[in-house]
């Protein structure tokens, strides 16, 4: 069965993701620090997930169904700007607060901090830990007979961390079909191409060999993303969605350029980027 978004839904997603991209750039520009490349590659998936697929409650524990929410873990915590922007869009906090990103005393820490911002399930930032966290959450939910999903967002360079593969074994061994992992396959990391730095190779084959259900998608095509997530929800195994993405997506001079991994745009560059996203 193909899960299809309506034309108006697709239009809305286009508008929202454009807004998120602009906010990401303004936040990073305002802080003069942050990670535009890997945030922009994640925007479309996060937008579809948070607005179409995930059961979540921006009012947090004020909702009586809160314990039955789906969980989200941003394993690649450096894409925090994108997460904060989509959370603000959904109503977790006021959008004005986005410009406090990375400033002293802000709820919006450089990498997500659960004790600073309500709605962040757990602090992340140090790579390689999110998938194990997801396994723990998935085991806990299963013990309580809660049928929620645990979504975890991993960077492709991050799969160089050995602990990711410990967790991949863990999820398969425990048959955690309530885990849906995304790998943001933007093919770049700080020092250059993932294949030049330390080749990741055929991720799909690797996950499959470990006993996972694998799906591949264009990480910027709303229908494909939506489809993959809805398919993954029905899997009897843990699912990884390997999303083909473009680092810096949406801003011509940032696209496919590793130097924009962790660099803030200056005034001129921000102006040009916002112009392109009009």
């Amino acid at each position: 069965m193909i899960n299809q978004l309506s034309g108006s839904e697709t239009e809305e997603l286009k508008t929202v993701s454009k807004k998120i991209r602009k906010e990401v750039l303004m936040m990073i520009h305002n802080a003069q620090s942050g990670h535009p490349g890997g945030s922009l590659s994640a925007v479309d998936i996060l937008t579809v997930l948070f607005t179409k697929c995930m059961k979540h409650y921006p009012e947090c524990d004020k909702n009586i169904d809160y314990k039955n929410r789906d969980r989200f873990v941003l394993s690649k915590g450096h894409a925090s700007a994108a997460l904060y922007a989509i959370m603000a869009h959904c109503g977790y906090f006021k959008e004005e607060e986005l410009l406090t990103f990375r400033k002293l005393g802000s709820k919006l820490q450089g990498h997500p901090c659960s004790n600073a911002l309500k709605g962040i399930e757990i602090s992340t930032g140090s790579l390689g830990q999110g998938l194990s966290i997801a396994c723990g959450m998935a085991l806990g939910l299963r013990l309580d007979n809660i049928n929620s999903k645990v979504y975890v967002y991993i960077g492709d360079g991050e799969t160089q961390e050995g602990s990711i593969w410990e967790a991949v074994m863990n999820a398969a061994h425990n048959k955690l079909n309530n885990i849906i992992a995304f790998v943001d396959r933007n093919k770049l990391q700080i020092d250059g191409s993932t294949e030049t730095v330390k080749s990741i190779g055929d991720l799909c084959a690797k996950f499959k060999a470990f006993g996972w259900n694998t799906l591949e998608t264009d990480g910027h095509n709303y229908n494909q993303i939506y489809n993959a997530i809805e398919k993954a929800k029905k899997s009897d195994k843990p699912t990884v969605i390997i999303a083909d993405t473009v680092k810096g997506k949406g801003v011509s001079f940032m696209e496919n350029n590793p130097s924009w991994h962790g660099k803030a745009p200056n005034d001129e560059q921000l102006k040009q980027a916002l112009e392109e996203l009009k």
Partner: peptide, 20 residues
């Protein structure tokens, strides 16, 4: 958790997030 202490520690963290 098998011979995988890093995975064990972070899995415990995830379990704690669900009230365990």
């Amino acid at each position: 958790m098998g011979i995988a202490e890093q995975d064990m520690m972070t899995t415990a963290a995830g379990l704690a997030c669900t009230g365990k």
